[in-house]
Amino acid sequence: MTTRPNVLEFTCDLISRPSVTPEDEGCQELIAARLANAGFRIENLPFGPVKNLWATHGHGSPVLVFLGHTDVVPTGPKEDWNSDPFVPTIRDGHLYGRGAADMKGSVAAFVIAAEDFVAAHPDHAGTIAVLLTSDEEGDAIDGVRKVAEHFRATGQRIDYCVTGEPSSIKQLGDLLRVGRRGTLSGTLTVRGIQGHVAYPERARNPIHQAMVPLAELCARQWDAGYPADAPEFPASSFQISNIHAGTGANNVIPGACEVVFNFRYNPGWQAEALEREVHAVLDRHGLEYEIRWHRGGEPFLTREGKLRRAAREVLIARCGVVPDENTGGGTSDARFIAPLGAEVIEMGPINASIHKIDERVAVDELLRLPAIYREVAEKLLLL
């Protein structure tokens, strides 16, 4: 009888597959084989170039989903790493490699937790499921976004969703993510009239035109958090990430200026309201412009309920810390599952090294993760 690898060995196997988004490089195939062997039903849900895996055990409600991704961000210059990013390496009590924290360690942990859970409780109530995509770190178009649309069309219910994103700050379990701000991006093109810098009266400089309204948008305090009396969400923010204009010559007034910006916003706003506010500012300043909008996801909040209580109790018992329950940070695929009516949380390892050179996870914390995820499942499905 072949002994299945433990969470450290399994994580190393996943890291060794260079699954830079949207590639999967066989990660989901490996995971599907393990879960099928444990009695899970396997369904592959490919959309475009993206692989998505839906594995379930049991029937009916409640439905608990462990959500994760097998893709990783690019490594950056490999020569800057102390070891090859796709050769998992242990040193100083940490496992190094791209995806160690974000989030192949969590994926390995909750796959093992799911296996252990069904082995111990083969006749459990409800459904335990694993949902994976290879499109979380990329465009996030053909991944969980499309899967959620498929679930909506087929009537697939989700009651609880545990996302394995690295959420901890200083020690495992010190932060429980219970919501996320929404994300709205815009690409603004301001039209001018190209001309010689010595004859500005014959041209119209789109950079000059854009500066004042952009400064107004940057300086505005969009809100003070949500709700206003006891904020569970930080204040909404507007940030410019790119500005491009010009021909490269220092004596030419450009004919256009492109500005890329992003809102991170709380439930006090909706995307269309923010879009209207931006258009009103630009119109008031008389710009000739167009904007391409991309709504990346609406904000969500999981209020106090069975999932938050279960996760909190497990983290207190197994990590010895009362987690901070907040809605900070960026975005995750949880934003596509919450609108299905699910209670959603994020809980995983320390996130200090994610997307960085020498990404790593503490081995002792990695070894504790499967039991944490399994106990959450037991609190939710052993009725």
Rank of each mutant, 00 (worst) to 15 (best):
I243E: 07
I243G: 06
I243D: 10
I243H: 10
I243F: 04
H244N: 14
H244Y: 13
A245H: 10
A245T: 12
A245N: 09
A245W: 07
A245G: 08
G246H: 00
G246D: 11
G246T: 09
T247G: 01
T247F: 06
G248A: 10
A249I: 01
A249M: 14
A249T: 02
N250R: 11
N250Y: 12
N250A: 12
N250S: 15
N250M: 14
N251H: 15
N251A: 12
N251Y: 13
N251W: 10
V252Y: 01
I253T: 14
P254G: 12
P254R: 10
P254K: 13
P254M: 15
G255F: 04
G255A: 08
G255D: 03
G255S: 07
A256G: 07
A256F: 05
A256N: 07
A256D: 08
C257G: 00
C257H: 00
E258P: 00
E258W: 00
E258C: 03
V259W: 04
V259S: 04
V259K: 02
V259Q: 04
V259I: 15
V259Y: 02
V259A: 03
V260S: 12
V260W: 09
V260L: 11
F261S: 03
F261V: 12
F261R: 08
F261D: 05
N262K: 08
N262L: 12
N262W: 03
N262Q: 14
F263D: 09
Y265R: 06
Y265L: 11
Y265Q: 09
Y265M: 09
Y265C: 05
N266L: 10
N266R: 02
P267R: 06
G268S: 02
G268L: 00
G268A: 01
W269V: 07
W269A: 03
W269Q: 05
Q270M: 04
Q270V: 13
Q270E: 15
A271V: 01
A271K: 01
A271P: 04
E272C: 03
E272K: 10
E272F: 12
E272P: 05
E272V: 02
E272H: 15
A273H: 10
A273M: 09
L274N: 06
L274I: 11
L274D: 05
L274H: 04
L274Q: 08
L274S: 06
L274Y: 11
E275Q: 15
R276G: 05
R276M: 12
E277M: 07
E277D: 14
V278P: 03
V278K: 10
V278W: 04
H279A: 14
H279E: 13
A280T: 06
A280L: 10
A280H: 12
A280P: 00
V281P: 02
